[in-house]
Amino acid sequence: MKRLKTFSMVLATVLTLGSCSTGQATVPAPVYDTGINPENWIKIPAGSFRMGQFEHETLIPYDYEISVTPVTNRQYAGFLNEALDAGVISVSGNVVSGYYPGDEFHGGRHEVEIVPGDYIYFMPGEADSRIIYQNQQFQVKSGYQDHPVTMVSWFGAWAYADYYGYRLPAETEWEKAARGLDGRPYPWGNGIAGANANYYASGDPFEESTGAIGNTTPVGFYNGGVYDGFVTLDSASPFGVYDMAGNVWEWTADIYEGTHLRYLRGGSRNNYAYDLRLWNRNSAHPEYCGPSEGFRVVRNP
């Protein structure tokens, strides 16, 4: 145990020495209007599509609507304020938490039991958060209103959807909306370039101040627009959904037997291009709040 502690301390010292940085949350973000309204919905028709790396024919026998972009900081701050007024959430220190009814426990290997109770929804006090809690109000840091919300846990994403009568997309729903029907690896087709999406060292204007890891980009940024000379390609999915690859990983709804982990799709600003291939999955503890994790929602038409 002593050996472990020593190892951790040495490692911590080395890493801390190399990591003295203010982080990009304090860096003023350039403000761009993408013209994409995050309140819009896109209808995905019932039918089959090719799912996964090996393109298995998969049927979704119903129509559904998916938000055209990930949920933004502005939208999520609005939810937090409404939920706070309604007594649905509580704020304690740097943590916003709320109730979750729990999951069935199967005793799987590494599975953690999710019992009914309060769980972390959001972390407004973290340096990485773009929403702060001041004077009993949640406010978005200047310039980040239309960026995707981050530092939100799966529970926080679930709560947002539940509050407004939406739901998180199932993995199948998410992938169909992203890929269309022809099994393409990226929403826009084959191949990837820095003009298509926000990924590691993709060269977007936000990387100038933060380095290759970059920053989130405003939702719908890759729509063919030109921002301070940075030319983007219209990179919507065949259905017209934006930001399905890169920017932030997106929480999905599925809960699988034998694990408490929740799954994320799409890749983020902090991943190499190959992680943005649409069949890739990520997973994390449902209370994990990260600066590259966000979500979008679906609803029944």
Binding site: L15, S19, C20, G23, A25, A127, I213, P291
Partner: peptide
């Protein structure tokens, strides 16, 4: 092993 001590946002210099 960087995530043990540095957050994703602050990792760039270390990376």
């Amino acid at each position: 092993l960087k995530r043990l001590v540095v957050s994703e946002t602050a990792q760039q210099p270390l990376v």
